[in-house]
């Protein structure tokens, strides 16, 4: 599969503070890759290097076969930086339109693509509304429209649902899954485990350096050396290691019970506990 992004042994310092330590990762065509880590783990620093706002002290980043600072590459990318606000004193349409112009699109294409995007994102009826009058969820949708106006090959979303209510978060997820079907490659940073699990094909756990990589299922499997049994009859919760022990325990149970593998959240906590 074609590599959309390759990060090779990247080191980034802020003065004496090490933000990224020998980070390597890749994204293939059509993949959504999640970058998971606690606050201050160096996710945003890495993302800023990928879209060319910062440059690595050491290592190499290749985006769509070019350097991240290459202006032509930026026209093929869509980026939503962390905690960004659209232009609040401009209408929804103006925000989308001018972003298209900045990305070098002609007026006719912007109108065609912009209207299609606003319809997909349920923003068409709000196209003449000022961005300041939109809810948090709507603003996030507007930023998604701004990022996708140029029909990018590669989309970077730095914590796209932070601060949104559960309903708005789910709406954003649905939109991203819709675009995934269009074979768009995406890099998603988040500290929401459910979001990463739901959206990502592969996940990188990062805390300054990459701690673990794999699909959500693979990661869970790797750490699934124990099972949790909830016995609904007695109300007991048991942690069991190994399949043989699990079978023995289940054989002793009467009535309803539930067996589950550790959640991604539990894996995450274990990985970061071990790392620290």
């Amino acid at each position: 599969m074609d590599k959309i992004l390759e990060v090779q042994h990247v080191w980034k310092y802020y003065g004496s503070l090490l933000a990224n330590e020998d980070v390597s990762l890749y994204i293939s065509q059509g993949e959504i890759v999640g970058l998971l880590g606690p606050n201050g783990a160096g996710k945003t620093t890495l993302v800023k290097q990928i879209y060319g706002e910062l440059t690595p002290n050491r290592g190499k980043i290749v985006v769509l076969s070019k350097k991240p600072t290459d202006r032509k590459i930026k026209k093929l990318m869509g980026v939503i930086p962390q905690e960004v606000r659209p232009y609040l004193d401009l209408t929804v349409w103006d925000n989308v339109y001018y972003m298209g112009r900045i990305k070098g699109m002609d007026k006719r294409t912007i109108v065609e693509k912009g209207e299609e995007l606003l319809r997909k994102l349920d923003l068409y009826d709000k196209r003449n509304t000022y961005a300041m009058d939109l809810s948090g969820g709507m603003r996030r949708k507007l930023l998604i429209a701004m990022a996708l106006i140029n029909d990018p090959k590669f989309v970077i979303l730095d914590e796209p649902t932070t601060g949104l209510d559960p309903e708005a978060r789910r709406e954003v997820w649905d939109i991203l899954l819709k675009f995934k079907k269009e074979q768009k490659s995406m890099l998603l940073t988040t500290h929401y485990l459910d979001e990463a699990e739901r959206l990502s094909d592969r996940i990188y756990f990062i805390n300054r350096k990459i701690l673990m990589e794999g699909s959500p299922a693979d990661i869970k499997k790797k750490f699934a050396d124990w099972y949790e049994i909830i016995d609904y009859e007695s109300g007991k919760i048991m942690k069991i290691r190994g399949e043989d022990e699990l079978k023995k325990t289940i054989a002793t149970l009467n009535g309803k019970f539930e067996v589950r593998l550790p959640s991604l959240e539990e894996v995450y906590l274990e990985v970061f506990k071990n790392a620290s």
Binding site: K48, Q82, R85
Partner: peptide
């Protein structure tokens, strides 16, 4: 502060 500098730098400005 509003992240718009990042937004426009990412757009190639």
């Amino acid at each position: 502060e509003s992240g718009r500098l990042s937004l426009l730098l990412a757009a190639g400005i």
